[in-house]
């Protein structure tokens, strides 16, 4: 356990350069854009010179780039950075939208898991059968189906034709805040009415966002499971007289390492998929907020969103690394 603690501390330290690097690159891209953000924030063409000057001064825009970056990051960390567009602290705006995005990502992650893993296993066991062909086809369809197309198609089916979903607004939050993610809090306090409302609102966007990942995961599970099944130890287990189910359990556990790796990457990938899904399903989440910020050259908000995404990404990878060690005794910190 002491080793785990050391490993965690070491990994946390590597967060710092990652996050600095990501925010710096984002800032530099925003910085070199040949437009005058101060003018844009002040109101565009008709902005008064005085307002522009004031904004320049407030955001340290007359200073060199590193000073600007330093100002941006430090005031962001302190929670003092004011968004020039909404006039709220950037972190306040983001934290209001963050639960929506995380909930969406969680829903699609669940879809990825419950579709991808069983489908992959079945297609490996029934290798080269009709089911296997179907899974391959499904994976290909998943990867090549644009989120907006599938989204509108399913909205047409479930909203226009059958009226079984709701596509506006945000369901109410539960009374108590524990983790900050509404559906988990509602589950924790046993508020199933709120849980139901959240499921009703999020299942379709979650499915649409997870559709692509589920196909990819199914293919991945299939291949790593098949590879594990053809190992020597599986043959030795057969020679030992081990029944099929137990054989599959051995193979699946061995196949988990590559599967977990892909799942970690997919969770990060889901975040990048949220802007379109949130727009299609009018969910007031962080992805949509990021898109709007980009349109308005609102780079304090862009840097803040990137910062948060980067942290989620590295955390997901950290969890993957910890899972490796739980699955495989050969991995030591």
């Amino acid at each position: 356990m002491a080793e785990l603690k050391k490993f965690l501390i070491r990994r946390m330290l590597t967060f710092i350069p990652t996050v600095i690097g990501v925010t710096l690159i984002t800032f530099m891209i925003a910085y070199v854009i040949p437009a005058d953000p101060a003018r844009a924030w002040a109101g565009g063409e008709k902005a008064s010179q005085k307002a522009i000057e004031l904004i320049r001064q407030r955001y340290h825009m007359d200073e060199p780039w590193y000073a600007q970056y330093w100002f941006l990051v430090t005031s962001l960390a302190k929670g003092e950075l004011i968004d020039p567009r909404t006039h709220n602290p950037v972190m306040y705006d983001i934290m209001k939208r963050f639960p929506v995005t995380i909930e969406l990502a969680l829903f699609s992650f669940v879809f990825i898991l419950i579709i991808g893993i069983p489908l992959g296993i079945i297609s490996a066991i029934k290798k080269d059968s009709i089911i296997d062909t179907f899974v391959r086809f499904f994976a290909l369809t998943g990867v090549s189906t644009p989120v907006f197309w599938l989204g509108y198609l399913l909205i047409y089916v479930f909203f226009v034709m059958f009226r079984v979903i709701n596509i506006v607004g945000k369901p109410p939050d539960p009374a108590v805040v524990i983790t900050g993610i509404p559906i988990i809090d509602a589950l924790l306090i046993g508020d199933f009415k709120t849980v139901n409302q959240h499921v009703a609102r999020y299942w379709l966007p979650g499915f649409v966002l997870g559709f692509m990942g589920a196909g990819v995961l199914a293919r991945f599970v299939r291949n790593s499971f098949l590879e594990a099944l053809s190992s020597d130890y599986i043959e030795f287990l057969k020679a030992k007289g081990v029944p099929k189910l137990r054989l599959w359990r051995h193979a699946l556990k061995n196949a988990l390492v590559p599967i977990v790796t892909v799942l970690g990457l997919q969770f990060g990938g889901l975040l990048s998929g949220t802007p379109i899904t949130e727009t299609v399903f009018s969910l007031p989440g962080m992805g949509r907020y990021a898109i709007q910020s980009i349109q308005n050259i609102d780079f304090p908000a862009i840097v803040a969103v990137t910062f948060l995404f980067a942290i989620i990404y590295v955390t997901a990878n950290l969890i993957v690394d910890i899972l490796y060690a739980i699955i495989d005794p050969r991995v030591r910190y």
């Binding site: 190992s231 130890y233 030795f236 020679a239 030992k240 007289g241 051995h250 061995n254 005794p329 050969r330």
Partner: peptide, 18 residues
């Protein structure tokens, strides 16, 4: 494995590493 048992060539591959 009960009446007819095997020993394989490569013990490193024959044992499940996990």
């Amino acid at each position: 494995g009960k009446e007819i048992a095997y020993i394989f060539q490569d013990p490193t591959a024959a044992l499940d590493p996990l």
